[in-house]
């Protein structure tokens, strides 16, 4: 099982290195362990996260890609769909039927033909367009809805922090 997972992870790493999606870099943290990855995600243009470079780790199960990885931001980030401890809560990280925050039925879900690239692209869209229905971070969702300029301020602060400024 782990052998097939490893083969798949290596293929995806190769693919991501050869054709990196814009604003995304990802790969294993160490060559000894292909099941723990680090990704660098650039905040999308035209959003308060613009210019930020956010670090998030991906942890792959032994039966990947039958089961999805989990993803957790290491960089501080205040966002409706990211738990205060950094864990990312979006539908593509869950198989259908597994509904931690009651996703809409049309939302993109995990299946073995999804990929790390698709997860990372979904995370970039999530940064650009937070989903404030049934959020992972209630404070962030509330502020996003009710006090957008304060939310944007916090986002811009996290951008500077992500750059070590």
């Amino acid at each position: 099982m782990a052998g097939s997972a490893l083969r798949r992870l290596m293929a995806e790493f190769k693919q991501l290195t050869q054709n990196p999606p814009e604003g995304i870099v990802a790969g294993p943290i160490s060559e000894d362990n292909f099941f723990e990855w680090e990704s660098l995600i650039t905040g999308p243009e035209g959003t308060p996260f613009e210019d930020g470079v956010f670090v998030a780790n991906l942890s792959f199960p032994n039966d990947y890609p039958l089961s999805p990885p989990s993803m957790k931001f290491v960089s501080e980030i205040f966002h409706p769909n990211i738990y205060p401890d950094g864990r990312v809560c979006i539908s593509i990280l869950h198989p259908p039927g597994d509904d931690p925050t009651g996703y809409e039925s049309s939302s993109e879900r995990w299946s073995p033909v999804q990929s790390i690239e698709k997860i990372l692209i979904s995370v970039v869209s999530m940064l650009a367009e937070p989903n404030d229905e049934s959020p992972a971070n209630v404070d962030a969702a509330k502020m996003y809805r009710e006090d957008r300029s304060k939310f944007n301020d916090i986002a811009r602060k996290s951008v500077r922090k992500s750059l070590g400024l």
């Binding site: 039958l66 198989p95 259908p96 039927g97 039925s105 993109e108 879900r109 299946s111 073995p112 033909v113």
Partner: peptide, 19 residues
């Protein structure tokens, strides 16, 4: 019944394991 497109149906009800 509940899906708008075949692609949607397949990605939710066919492709994922354990469905």
């Amino acid at each position: 019944e509940t899906y708008q497109s075949m692609k949607d149906f397949c990605s939710h009800e066919v492709e994922p394991m354990y469905r």
